[in-house]
Design a protein around this nucleic acid. Structure first.
Lengths: 180, 180
DNA sequence: CCACACTATGTCACTTCTGACATAGTGTGG
DNA sequence: CCACACTATGTCAGAAGTGACATAGTGTGG
């Protein structure tokens, strides 16, 4: 019934009440690195969730032509989120533009391909450093019943992902250097 | 102009001529693990690519109500593909349902969450074993100018990804076991 | 005091992707 | 000889996601 975006929003609201704007900001750099949405999508989804009784809001005076709406989880929303969490995820199709480019890379100039991967390597190394700084702010893993466990566990995933990705880019650069 | 799916199709056709059905089959388990599309999307995209002159086809007698169409890259299609390969990829938003569930996992029953990750771990370990078998079929990395380099490099990426993912799932299971 | 960034909500046209429906020949195994 | 899987192309409704447009108050720095 509810889309995955809906659950992403519920997961954010489980941490505390937020405006649509706050939720969009939390998702801009993905909610701890794994789900993004524009505010246009979030406002629309919040209306659906409110219609379904999974979230409720108080209107308060705020800037702009409309009042601001502070959303919170309803008990039904909490139940729906809890039930969804332990259900197996649908196998989301992986779509990765860089890997697709790699698949076709034999056609292109090796020097240009090498530059592409060197640039990507830089991006992943930067992100890795950033995540490592953030990891230090946690003094080891929180308890699995603590909301902070969600943040820490997703950060661990991001950390592993960036490491894998950086290593692969480094390997690509090596391969392409050998052939020049 | 052309969508990423269009380039995915061009990348497949760069290996040789194919019918729409062949392309869909190649993408069902993603084109070497990174891009998927249904046949309904592929047929529609092939029509656009043909209209744009990036691919051409010969109709041959085949099963079904229509003739079968064997598509091939045109010189323009090859140029477009080659140019696209070395352009930086747009930062595709990451959307990962399992990581989203992790973010909300502190709300749910730790035993059920543990089961979810144990199951995911099994999936990744199986896939890893499969990829490792495939890697053995290559006797080391092909030359970067060889079409097989594309296959090998994407396989390497898949291998690294599955390893990272399995390791993370294992860590999650450990965390959730400690708290039971 | 003015410009600008930030807070805040919303609509709309458009693209992309999914899942179901529709149709039909060919080859294989029981 | 029949059922079934595979080859093969296509349409269509609807969901999901993007980017631009529209509007306006509040606080900060030069």
């Amino acid at each position: 019934m509810t889309s995955t975006l809906g659950y992403a929003i519920l997961a954010v609201l489980a941490r505390g009440e937020r405006t649509g704007y706050d939720i969009a900001a939390a998702m801009r750099r993905p909610v701890s690195y794994f789900w993004t949405a524009r505010h246009s999508q979030i406002h629309a989804e919040l209306q659906k969730l409110a219609a379904g009784g999974l979230v409720a809001f108080d209107a308060r005076h705020g800037p702009g032509p409309q009042d601001k709406k502070v959303y919170r989880l309803t008990p039904e929303g909490g139940d729906a989120l809890r039930a969804w969490v332990t259900e197996p995820p649908r196998e989301r199709p992986e779509r990765d533009e860089l890997v697709l480019k790699t698949y076709a890379s034999w056609l292109a100039d090796p020097g240009l391909v090498r530059r592409l991967f060197a640039e990507q390597l830089r991006v992943h190394e930067e992100r890795l450093a950033e995540y490592e700084r953030e990891e230090e702010l946690f003094g080891g893993p929180p308890d699995p019943g603590d909301p902070r466990f969600g943040n820490y566990a997703t950060l661990r995933c991001g950390l592993g992902y960036e490491r894998h990705r950086a290593e692969w880019c480094r390997w690509m650069v090596t391969q392409l250097s050998a052939s020049l």
